[in-house]
């Protein structure tokens, strides 16, 4: 990505730099495609994160269930969505958390975009 390219507010593109930073976290989230792995994570979160070699930053972000921290640690939203699924969160929950809004306010914002 060109250094001169303008920033997009509130947005970090998932490029090679982020893909390398987030590899362990994303690999763990990719494993959540399988129900047995989701169960194993819930049964022993520490052991599961350790098995995937999460960095300290990634482990803390997982512990906090904090989407902006997970993204900063290299998480990709497509894989993180599988983690969110374990927690029973949908994409409006994720949007509300990242924007600091209530879920109802976030949904109202989406509705308003259609008018």
């Amino acid at each position: 990505m060109s250094a001169a390219a303008p920033e997009i507010p509130g947005t970090v593109l998932f490029d090679g730099r982020m893909a390398m930073r987030g590899y362990a976290l994303n690999k763990m989230c990719f494993s959540f495609n399988e129900a047995a792995n989701r169960t194993a994570f819930l049964a022993d979160e520490d052991a599961y994160c350790a098995a995937y070699g999460l960095t300290a930053e990634q482990r803390e972000a997982v512990r906090h269930r904090n989407v902006l921290e997970l993204l900063a640690a290299g998480g990709n939203v497509y894989y993180l969505a599988k983690f969110a699924g374990i927690l029973g969160l949908d994409v409006q929950d994720l949007g509300a958390q990242q924007t600091g809004m209530s879920k109802d306010a976030f949904k109202a914002k989406l509705q308003a975009a259609g008018r």
């Binding site: 997009i8 507010p9 509130g10 947005t11 970090v12 989407v67 902006l68 993204l71 939203v77 993180l80 969505a81 994409v91 994720l94 949007g95 990242q98 924007t99 976030f106 914002k109 989406l110 975009a113 259609g114």
Partner: peptide
């Protein structure tokens, strides 16, 4: 879906 601009349409 991601970042502080989540919900952008």
């Amino acid at each position: 879906l991601d970042g502080k601009r989540a919900g952008h349409i």
